[in-house]
Amino acid sequence: MTATRTILLGRTADGLFWMARHIERAEAMARLIDAGLHMALTRGAAEANWRSVLDSAGMAGAFAARHGEAEGEPDPAAAIDFLLRDPDNPSSVSNALTQGRTNARMVRTALSRDAWEAVNEAWRRVSADLARPVPEANLPAVLARVKQATALIRGMVENTILRTPGFQFMRLGLHLERADTTARILDVKYYHLLPSSSWVGSALDQTQWDSLLRSVSAHKAYKWLYDADISAANTADFLILNPRMPRSLAFCHAEISAALDQLARDCGARPPCHDEADAIRRMLTERDIDEVFEEGLHEFLVGFLADNARLAAGIARDYRFTE
């Protein structure tokens, strides 16, 4: 007997897509805080650059709106609390996880019991950890638990969910979010943090770059692949074009293309968002990093973020996430 073809509601596809995005966002936020903390530990609290962490998270504006515009370095405890658990910050670790879990609850029937329980447990444990401000001494342990809890979710999804279209939407959400995060972090470091554009390509503040790589958990891998000294061109190459780096734009878009190809096979149709994905993929595979720099890294990244957002909207449209 052949199994009947599975039906996937558009709303369920939407829920799975956003569940994966929110959970990836919670993890990315935890990594950014971790990198900020490392900077503070290696450079001393006085020089710690929480402003740059807020910038990388795309949260400088929201933070200012919450705590008032101020010159110079923000209060570390306030910055950490804002990124970790502020209810007014929609992308705080605690809000991202809560939204991930709300989406998971909505699509409960499309998840395996193991996957659902991993999401629910992550939310329960992290909510308990974040119920009140986290003292700095506990921060490394709390951040480690966030990373472990989100990794467990990915593992359960990977190991227990059928490769029906629902799975592909989680894969799409995760990699679109991840590519988005990497592009933002890179853009902030290059464009916003350098005193002037003449610094691009020059000998740079090693700590900044170490921190950048650390925030994507790639500071060791980098050293294996490139020179021990961190250069702007190599870092950009690593995080944008390297197909082996699991947080690079090229890697994420290879996954996105694979997920879309599988959807096209499952559904027997190839709606327009597939062409949009192909165009982004070509942009990431058919040029080298020198060409990217010629175009202007900032312009390239801004263009990429817009394309990425357009692709997400295209997927939502073509696969009927909403009416």
């Binding site: 996937l8 709303r11 696969y319």
Partner: peptide, 17 residues
């Protein structure tokens, strides 16, 4: 919000229509 009447039947919006 997943449902509407289509061609005289109640139908649900899937990713394929």
């Amino acid at each position: 919000r997943d449902l509407r009447v289509v061609d005289g039947h109640v139908a649900m919006r899937t990713i394929e229509g």
